[in-house]
Simulated scan of single mutants.
Amino acid sequence: MEGNLTSLLDRGDSENMLVGYTSPTSNSSAAYEYFYPELDTDCDLENIPVFAPTFFPVLYSLLFVVGLVGNALVIWVLIVFKKVRAITDVYLLNLAISDLLFVFSLPFLVQYSIKSQWTFGNAMCKIISSAYFTGFYSSTLFITIMSIDRYLAIVRSVSAPQIRTTGCGVISSLVIWAVAILASAPDFVFFQEMNYNNQTKCIPHYPDSKNGWKNFSNFEVNVLGWLIPAGILIFCYHSIFKNLQKCHTQNKYKAMKLVFLVVIVFFVCWTPINIALFMDSLRNMYIIDDCQTSQRLDLALELAEVLSFIHCCLNPIIYAFVGEKFKKHVHKAFRRFARFLLICKNQGVSDGHGLDKHYTLLGTSSQSQLR
């Protein structure tokens, strides 16, 4: 990715506000400088602590590996073993693809954090930024539609079979991808490679000088990426929880724990960054004009960002590996893979013995001819 979520969203080049720009994760010795016209004063915003240039690349590299393996495994099992027959499988597959799109931007973030500048060109700047936001929006929306699907299956079980078809799942997925691509279109337009303070950056260049588009981007994430999904999740899982309380099945408490897990993980991962982005919008509008508050807000943006990146690694565990049927397919996949490796190993050993035997016979024959 081209920085990180806060770098992508709230580091514009507004003429009357942002005087200096440096990627937060790239250079701990650099500083941001904001000018507050009302106070007629400059505010140097100190960067993340000294450990940042080492901490962020290591963290994002780890998240890349875990997210890549987890989501790729989900896609492999769904396509090869489970065959994507049900509507839940359709949503799981699309959620894994969304998270992979999100994860694939992390190597660019690692490079951006280490070298302190963008080296992949203007085209890749636009592609990676828009791909990142497409993955972000689609992942959140697929979590939302999966919550609605569970609500229909448990609370509206009588009428649900008519709606919960594979065809409806495919159509819903196409609509979600269209919404996600449309929502990330401004990022493709505004993000560009720029030379700033003798460093090459991949940052948004907004056409207005009053932070209108910048605030719109923040509010778009707040509304589409958190407020609407959070409201739907609360309604759906509250209804599901009430319905489960009436049940007397053996798996009742296990299902209730899963409900809590889904809601808690979503809010823990995404609430801090959305609050921080909302506060950043208030700063852009000069409602927050205190230097010390701005310094704390910058730090809060960075730390909240860490939680948001973790979510793409947790989705495979929450939505796939917890289910008993899916776990059986995973075990089946690993058994087949282990059997394949064993066959390859035995074949290699067998070929090795054959080669040795052949070599011995040739050696014996050659020696007999030399005598």
Rank of each mutant, 00 (worst) to 15 (best):
K325L: 09
S157Q: 07
L106C: 06
L106P: 02
V19P: 00
I127H: 03
V170Y: 09
D187A: 12
V110A: 09
G167S: 14
D208W: 05
R283Q: 09
N218M: 06
P272F: 06
L258G: 02
D149H: 14
L282K: 08
Y151T: 00
N218S: 13
N243M: 11
I264F: 12
P57M: 07
F191C: 08
K82S: 08
D89S: 03
I273D: 02
E46Q: 11
L370M: 12
D298T: 12
T166V: 15
D280K: 01
D40Y: 07
Y91C: 04
N346M: 14
L258R: 09
M17T: 03
L106D: 00
L303Q: 08
A300M: 12
F102E: 03
R336C: 12
N222Q: 10
S217H: 11
F64V: 07
V259Q: 05
K210W: 05
D351H: 13
Q347N: 14
A185W: 12
P49C: 07
V179W: 06
L282P: 06
S308M: 11
V189A: 05
A72P: 09
Y21G: 03
Q295P: 01
I79C: 09
F334C: 09
T119S: 13
A304C: 12
S129H: 04
L152H: 07
Y151C: 03
D89K: 05
L59Y: 15
D356E: 15
V265S: 14
D356S: 14
C291D: 02
R150P: 02
M1W: 01
N4I: 05
Y91L: 08
I343Y: 12
A304V: 03
C247V: 13
A183K: 00
I148Q: 00
A304P: 04
L233N: 00
P204W: 05
K257W: 10
T271V: 09
A320G: 11
L341D: 06
S281R: 06
A153V: 06
N122E: 06
S105G: 15
P272L: 08
Y137G: 01
K242G: 01
F340A: 12
A276I: 04
T119N: 13
T119I: 12
D187L: 13
T293K: 11
A276L: 04
G169W: 03
I171H: 04
T6W: 10
I288C: 04
I288F: 01
V90F: 03
T293Q: 11
S139W: 01
G348T: 13
Q111A: 14
S184V: 02
V175T: 08
F190P: 05
N71P: 07
T249G: 15
V221T: 09
S113N: 08
Q117V: 05
V263N: 04
A131H: 06
S173C: 07
A131R: 02
C125Y: 04
D149E: 15
V349T: 12
C344G: 10
S7D: 15
E220R: 15
P229I: 00
P53S: 05
I203P: 01
